[in-house]
């Protein structure tokens, strides 16, 4: 009984390590393939699929999140007569945490799942093997552009998310609830540091971009070539990406802002 349990635990552990190893090799080999000038067209097409098509969901969510944050900050801060600090709280929360994290989660749901399903179906219908037979390396032709597109698109989407969310916060906090516009902006400009808040947030976005596109591509490439296999792989992409984003975010925050004070 116990031995059986231990055995299964051992198998699961070894499978986990071998998956991680294969995923790392796959990532390294695919990243090596680009950028080559001949592949810019492929990259552009993927940027369209992954980035441009995600703009709508990003803009709508960003506006809603900025608006609701502003509402919450305003009602709580008004208790202390500090409603003019809404801008500070809004900008810091968005730039440091919510911008990269929420964009990453939405990106995993919107673009990561699509990448996995697409590559999984290519594998199931043996498009990948036929490419390899024709002497076209699917790593370079299919995987690499998606990895790069995800890595580039997520930071760009995060920039748009942050800007729109702050706009949403201004609409609710200043134009609707009536926080003072002057101290809203000046408080923000005094408190936000270009590197410490904005720059570090963008580094998070880049890390999440690498993680999500890596997980999505590997899950697609590794999917069991059946309908059920693709569905399971797509689910795993979203679940693993979300966990990876949230866990990595905690570690990054700890590293970046760990020495509280100063």
């Amino acid at each position: 009984m116990t031995r059986d349990y231990l055995r299964r635990l051992g198998i699961a552990g070894l499978t986990g390590f071998s998956n991680l190893g294969r995923a790392t090799v796959l990532w390294a080999r695919a990243m090596w393939g680009l950028p080559r000038w001949a592949d810019v067209g492929l990259l552009t097409r993927q940027m369209y699929q992954v980035g441009v098509q995600s703009i709508m969901i990003i803009v709508l969510s960003a506006f809603a999140i900025g608006a609701v944050l502003s509402l919450q900050f305003y009602t709580q801060l008004a208790n202390f007569g500090a409603q003019d600090s809404v801008g500070v709280g809004l900008a810091l929360v968005l730039l440091r945490e919510l911008g990269p994290v929420v964009t990453g989660l939405l990106f995993a749901g919107r673009a990561g799942s699509a990448i996995t399903a697409e590559i999984g179906l290519m594998k199931t219908t043996e498009q990948l093997s036929s490419m390899a037979m024709m002497g076209v390396d699917p790593l370079h032709r299919v995987l690499a552009p998606r990895l790069w597109a995800g890595m580039i698109s997520l930071p760009l989407l995060t920039l748009i998310f942050n800007a729109i969310a702050i706009f949403g916060g201004v609409v609710v906090g200043v134009h609707w609830l009536g926080a003072d516009e002057g101290s809203f902006w000046s408080g923000m400009q005094n408190a936000v540091d270009i590197w410490n808040d904005f720059g570090k947030g963008m580094i998070k976005a880049l890390v999440f971009g690498v993680l999500v596109s890596w997980i999505a591509v590997f899950q697609g490439y590794d999917a069991e070539p059946t309908a059920a296999g693709i569905s399971a792989a797509t689910t795993r992409t979203v679940v693993l990406s979300s966990i990876a984003i949230l866990a990595t975010d905690f570690v990054l925050t700890l590293g970046m802002y760990g020495n509280f004070g100063s």
Binding site: G51, V52, L156, L159, I160, I166, Q189, N190, I194, F198
Partner: peptide, 26 residues
Amino acid sequence: IEISVGAFVAAAIVAMVFLAVRVSGV
């Protein structure tokens, strides 16, 4: 596709300038 990707990147750059100048006060 190229035009829309270009517009996407341009929008992101505008957002970056906004975040740097208006929000971070550079």
